[in-house]
Design a protein around this nucleic acid. Structure first.
Length: 218
DNA sequence: GCCCAGGTGGGTA
DNA sequence: TACCCACATGGG
């Protein structure tokens, strides 16, 4: 089973995921910071609070009084760290791109990725998420779910670095943002409904015939 | 009470 | 490079 066949099976099983769940690129980027090692349900509470405070824009974030951002995003966890990271991100947009994420994202993808990775709190997954889901650039997103699936199917062994896994996908798939978008979203959906860390639901998993974990469990 | 959740940065050897 | 740890809330 190659990566295109894996994609086809996931899509047939779960259908289009319509990612990223956000109304604007900036809201999407905030979600990328907030979801770092955090369940999305908690991120939604934080996003809802930011929306109610009219703080889903760079200017809205910048206008918040001291401590207000921390209070609003508290449900998403790591709120002190994340508030600092979001403020730095907003400051970068204001200083370099006229306060507009869209202007930043209009740049050349490879240079953009370097620029994003230089920011505090923007690691490879956050950078690729922003590039792909906010910018529409074909940069494959790797996360814990991608690694878990790769290990269970057998094309990863768990020791590969982020960039190695990213290149594994990008070298085997056409560089198309819609494909990368749907692929990552489907991997997350699969992990949430089937491929759990400790409680795998392998009995009627669409990938069970190709899954090492499923075989060892059944 | 425990484990888990769409990571990242800083420190150490 | 490879580990270790802090960061923090909320659900199962």
């Amino acid at each position: 089973m190659d990566l295109q066949q894996l994609f086809d099976r996931l899509l047939a099983s779960y259908g289009p995921r319509h990612w990223w769940p956000a109304q604007t690129p900036f809201e999407m980027a905030l979600g990328a910071f907030l979801t770092q090692n955090t369940a999305w349900t908690n991120v939604e509470r934080a996003i809802d609070a930011l929306r109610a405070a009219d703080a889903l824009t760079p200017a809205g974030i910048a206008a918040l009084a001291d401590g207000r951002l921390e209070a609003l995003i508290r449900p998403a966890g790591y709120f002190n760290q994340k508030a600092d990271r979001i403020r730095r991100f907003v400051a970068h947009l204001q200083q370099r791109h006229g306060g507009s994420l869209e202007r930043l994202l209009a740049g050349e993808p490879a240079a953009l990725r370097v620029e994003l990775l230089a920011l505090k709190g923007v690691g490879p997954e956050t950078a690729d998420s922003i590039l792909l889901y906010a910018g529409g650039h074909p940069s494959f997103v790797v996360d814990a779910y991608t690694r878990r699936l790769g290990e269970r199917i057998g094309f990863l062994d768990g020791t590969e670095g982020y960039e190695t896994v990213r290149q594994y996908f990008m070298q085997r798939l056409p560089a198309a943002a819609p494909l990368f978008n749907e692929y990552h979203a489907l991997i997350v959906e699969h992990a949430k409904v089937r491929c759990r860390k400790r409680a795998p639901l392998c009995a009627d998993c669409p990938l069970r015939r190709d899954c090492r974990y499923g075989k060892s469990q059944s």
